[in-house]
């Protein structure tokens, strides 16, 4: 699936998007896999209360299932307007 990062999450990880091959059942499982990769991922996912997730461009939750999802995005709380 495509995993996208925005704002400081993108800066900490060092890339805007990547293809991730995963069997993770939920968003939380995917985060655990990413955290275990490298320090920069661990740093980005250190505090989940500071993160939001969107599945196929709709806001979602960390316990949401990933079955059928093509695009996951991680970003900080939004500051539009």
């Amino acid at each position: 699936m495509d995993v996208l990062y925005f704002a400081w999450v993108r800066e900490r990880i060092g890339l805007p998007r990547e293809q991730v091959d995963t069997q993770a059942a939920t968003v939380a499982d995917l985060i655990e896999e990413l955290r275990a990769r490298e320090d920069r991922y661990a740093a980005a996912f250190e505090d989940l209360s500071a993160l939001r997730v969107a599945l196929d461009q709709d806001l979602s939750d960390f316990d949401a299932p990933l079955k059928g999802v093509r695009e996951v995005a991680f970003f900080p709380p939004m500051t539009g307007g």
Partner: peptide, 14 residues
Amino acid sequence: LMDYLKSRAPFWKK
């Protein structure tokens, strides 16, 4: 619209 655009539209300001 303004209240929701602030925190539900995916923009980030630097």
